[in-house]
Lab assay of single mutants.
Amino acid sequence: MAAGGDHGSPDSYRSPLASRYASPEMCFVFSDRYKFRTWRQLWLWLAEAEQTLGLPITDEQIQEMKSNLENIDFKMAAEEEKRLRHDVMAHVHTFGHCCPKAAGIIHLGATSCYVGDNTDLIILRNALDLLLPKLARVISRLADFAKERASLPTLGFTHFQPAQLTTVGKRCCLWIQDLCMDLQNLKRVRDDLRFRGVKGTTGTQASFLQLFEGDDHKVEQLDKMVTEKAGFKRAFIITGQTYTRKVDIEVLSVLASLGASVHKICTDIRLLANLKEMEEPFEKQQIGSSAMPYKRNPMRSERCCSLARHLMTLVMDPLQTASVQWFERTLDDSANRRICLAEAFLTADTILNTLQNISEGLVVYPKVIERRIRQELPFMATENIIMAMVKAGGSRQDCHEKIRVLSQQAASVVKQEGGDNDLIERIQVDAYFSPIHSQLDHLLDPSSFTGRASQQVQRFLEEEVYPLLKPYESVMKVKAELCL
């Protein structure tokens, strides 16, 4: 049975990233139509530049190519590739079939990587351009969430054990800070992308030097003109047959890092959902379990974690691919890159769409948070109580021993009897502590235990987050809708 299948058929496997999760716009960027249309555009740009620099290419040939950029006979191309065992030459023939007058000058002087690699770089750039505003929107939604809850005390956790208090907004800023680093890295790697350009079979530009009869300047002009037509500021000066596969490492490393950030955020949300302090959106008709109707599973956060793990592992592909590119190139890269580049971007696209949807509907339960604080705060307040007693004339050592005994009794009630923490009640009825009984409410005010959390939130948002989001103001209103 021949390899390949009808990918629109229910009898043929289709990647869930495309069929179930990723956005239509990201799927289109990695589609065959987008790819092969870009090949034709690159052939047109090459012909236009070659004509401008004096090669015998007519206006009629150029116009014929322009008129057929979208006229792609995919069936013919597939048949040609089956016959020739070469995808680029299959599309040269297919393009030439609908451009008979231009057929002889299509791909003039070029090698397969002229269309293959340059198209990949265009796709990487455009895919990054799709991700950047999506990530900015996630940051914006979380920034709104953090600002609104900047002063809401909550129990902090280290080692997932109760620690000092923080605020809900401050905790959210930990998430935002990681995503801001990801946004900066995505922008950097996007701006650092260079075009492969017009380089020939081993990167020496020998074929173009021959076409222009040894004119170095025209060869350099050709490279520059096509690079500018493709919208790049610069091209690699040095290439082998391909652009260095280190570029793929750079791009997928940034995406993998984004995956790590999203995994951490969504894990926190899942843990908070278990504590009943916070939940992701839950639709009115949504079913959490087929057997347990009360369940409210954090399905979206779980999906993000599941896909983020996949995204983090994909960076190993370009690392290994770059390491086995012998001399000017081997074909070890080809099949692998067809999979890992598309999957990385479709996965990143999915987790950003999902995280935006989550961040637009996060639900906080202040009463649950308050109750958990009441359970733990008495123990945390013991040092403040000791200091207040010393100020009232008591002995630190005597007070410490009193607190120690009462704390152990209260802990026994919590752990052995399943009761509430009654340390404060014990202190309130103990005559030894009568000098500070009137101060206990103040000493137990949760806001006095959150330090500068709310001020940190305000400063972080104003100095770091809002300036970073400013270039994306025009796209901030787009909502994230999930079908599944």
Rank of each mutant, 00 (worst) to 15 (best):
R14K: 15
R14W: 12
A22R: 10
A22Y: 10
E25R: 13
M26V: 07
R40L: 00
W43I: 01
W43R: 00
L44S: 08
L46Q: 05
L46G: 02
E48S: 07
Q51A: 09
G54N: 11
I62S: 04
S67N: 13
N71D: 14
N71Q: 08
N71W: 11
D73A: 09
F74P: 10
M76D: 13
A78T: 13
V92Q: 00
V92E: 07
V92H: 00
V92G: 09
H93Y: 08
T94C: 12
K101N: 10
A102D: 04
A103V: 14
I106S: 04
I106M: 08
H107C: 05
L108G: 06
A110T: 10
S112C: 04
D117S: 02
N118S: 04
D120E: 15
D120C: 07
I122A: 03
L124E: 13
A127N: 05
L128Y: 07
L131R: 00
L131M: 13
V138P: 05
L142P: 01
K147N: 14
R149G: 09
L152S: 08
Q161A: 05
A163S: 13
L165Q: 04
T167A: 01
K170F: 05
R171D: 00
C172G: 11
C173H: 02
C173T: 09
L179K: 01
L179C: 09
C180Q: 08
D182L: 03
L183C: 10
Q184V: 10
K187C: 10
D192L: 09
D192V: 09
R194E: 02
F195N: 02
F195G: 07
R196K: 11
T204Q: 15
S207A: 14
S207P: 08
S207W: 05
F208S: 04
F208A: 04
Q210D: 12
K218V: 01
Q221D: 14
M225I: 09
M225Q: 12
V226R: 01
T227N: 08
E228A: 11
A230R: 01
G240V: 02
Q241C: 02
Y243G: 13
I249W: 04
L252H: 11
L255W: 03
S257Q: 10
A260E: 05
K264W: 02
T267V: 10
I269S: 04
E280P: 04
K284N: 13
Q286A: 03
I287Y: 02
S289G: 01
M292N: 02
Y294N: 04
N297G: 02
P298C: 12
P298R: 02
M299P: 10
M299W: 00
E302M: 06
E302Q: 03
C304Y: 01
L307F: 15
A308P: 04
H310P: 03
H310A: 09
T313Q: 10
V315L: 13
M316Y: 05
T321C: 11
A322S: 09
D332K: 01
N336R: 01
R338D: 00
C340G: 09
A342G: 13
F345V: 11
L346Q: 11
L346K: 05
N353C: 14
S359Y: 13
E360W: 02
G361S: 15
L362W: 05
V368A: 06
E370L: 12
E370F: 14
R374M: 08
T382C: 10
E383S: 02
E401Y: 08
E401L: 09
K402T: 05
I403G: 05
Q409R: 12
A410P: 02
S412W: 14
Q416W: 13
D420N: 06
N421V: 11
D422C: 10
I424K: 15
I424V: 15
Q428G: 12
F433A: 06
L444C: 02
F449G: 03
T450F: 06
Q455L: 12
E463K: 11
K470L: 13
E481Q: 15
L482N: 07
